[in-house]
């Protein structure tokens, strides 16, 4: 009996280790990509994100512990559009992993097929603030882009492990179906509030506001990446009073002081949305991200009677 139990345990360990051996090791830069990769990859992959969802993804530190993660990665998935330009390149350089080098076959820029907004026309200068020359990198906040990212990941994983292609295709189809259902739910919740005017802290939300028909009339930051200034704040308060804007959407990694002051002056409500999976408690996957944000926006609009 004892021997049989031991034998079973041995087989179980063997199977588990064989499974661990087979799993494709995926490293993503953000928790959104981690969540989508998990949807598609299932138990054929192990996946880990470098940045946390409650962290400003522009300002992550290039810690040596990240080098170790990249060193053993089979696939690197990044947001791209220069979001990680301040920290990812030195990590890749030191990773001693030739497959994940830019243009390597295991370097996947998730923005390739996404719908990118705010691609600047004409010449951009730093006088405009930290404008990303290849468009707004916060594109995962449009649910349709989640679908496009998932499809890209499905293709890449199938390339890496052709025998599992059918598995990844089936997981993608399932994700696509659940996402379509969820989108209907989110759209229904937001439908009565099309055209409601809001203010956001940073330009993190164009894909979100476009998807759900909100109208962003201004930003707490005078220019992208530039902290609030008294004169800009005054102008914003005037403009919000004139247009009767009642909702200020901010990210958890920004200081609330200025948005709170603006809210006191204008009678608006400040809501701290989750800009990413992991951004707030309970936001543990890509679906819960929109559940959380849509819910907060809807209740803020209801409470303030914003139009």
């Amino acid at each position: 009996m004892k021997i049989r139990t031991l034998g079973a345990a041995f087989v179980a360990v063997l199977l588990a280790s064989a499974n661990a051996f087979a799993a494709i090791k995926v490293v993503t830069t953000t928790e959104d990509l981690e969540s989508i990769a998990r949807e598609v990859g299932g138990d054929k992959i192990s996946v880990e994100s470098l940045a946390k969802g409650y962290q400003d993804p522009h300002f992550v530190e290039a810690k040596p512990s990240f080098i170790l993660k990249l060193h053993s990665a089979d696939l690197l998935i990044l947001v791209g559009r220069e979001l990680e330009i301040g920290w990812l390149p030195p990590l890749i350089n030191q990773a001693r992993n030739d497959r994940i080098q830019p243009n390597g076959d295991r370097y996947l820029d998730a923005s390739q097929t996404a719908k990118i907004l705010e691609i600047p026309n004409g010449q951009i200068t730093r006088a405009m603030g930290d404008v990303h020359p290849s468009g707004n990198p916060h594109y995962w906040l449009g649910p349709d882009n989640g679908r496009r990212i998932a499809q890209l990941i499905q293709k890449k994983l199938s390339e890496i492990s052709p025998p599992d292609a059918a598995y990844f295709a089936q997981r993608y189809a399932d994700f696509d179906r659940r996402l379509a259902e969820a989108e209907k739910r989110w759209q229904a919740a937001m439908a009565p509030y099309k055209g409601v005017k809001v203010v956001t802290y940073h330009r993190s939300w164009p894909n979100f506001t476009e998807a759900f028909g909100l109208d962003v009339i201004g930003y707490v930051e005078p220019k992208p990446g530039i902290p609030p200034s008294p004169s800009h704040t005054l102008e914003l308060i005037q403009e919000m009073k004139r247009q009767q804007v009642k909702v200020i959407m901010i990210e958890p990694y920004f200081d609330r002081k200025t948005p709170d002051a603006i809210a006191r002056e204008t009678g608006a409500q400040v809501i701290v949305l989750a800009p990413s999976v992991g951004g707030e408690k309970g936001v543990t996957d890509y679906f819960k991200l929109f559940d959380y944000d849509v819910n907060l926006v809807v209740s803020a609009i209801k409470q303030t009677g914003a139009k």
Partner: peptide, 10 residues
């Protein structure tokens, strides 16, 4: 600093 956005050393 002007030109390309450099990465921050750790």
């Amino acid at each position: 600093s002007i030109g390309a956005h450099g990465a921050h050393v750790f």
